[in-house]
Amino acid sequence: MQQEKAVGSVRLWEIIVAAIFLVFGAIVVWDSRRLGAQWGSDGPQAGYFPFYIGAIICVASLVNLFSAVAKGSRDAFVEWGQLRLILIVMVPTLVYVALMDNPWYSLGMYVPSIVFIAFFMRFLGKYGWPKIVAVSVGTVVAFFVMFEIWFKVPLPKGPIEAAFGFA
């Protein structure tokens, strides 16, 4: 038997998600009331349909909330070892997206993709640099040819692509 630390029980997460649903439903109801969920002079107002949607979300999430509190499973939602693996992927992904899109200095799509693939190969795969460069640059060049040249779908480009004459 492996003894792994659990990160929250299923029950806890059921409660959290149901509560978020409840808040979301309340926001929908509130915003629909603001727009008018009544019958206007020219037909149903903008909030007419969403109002009911929001109301149903509230009712359903209340049921989910109660059933989670009453008989939610105490099993682990995710074990620490699993969460570690997930974070190893999620954190670099967030950095990757931030490199592509931030208010200060966005690098476009191609260069961060090379860095992203290289990072994974280096830190998870422990590959040597020649292989890393070949795979990461090769993949991204293939995407470049496919998108920019074949299908003529431009992707965002940063300063380095501009230096090569692509803007």
Binding site: V97, F116, I117, F120, M121, L124
Partner: peptide
Amino acid sequence: FSIIAPVILVICAI
């Protein structure tokens, strides 16, 4: 996996 995962994520982002 260390090659396929980032490539899939890049494809999803694109």
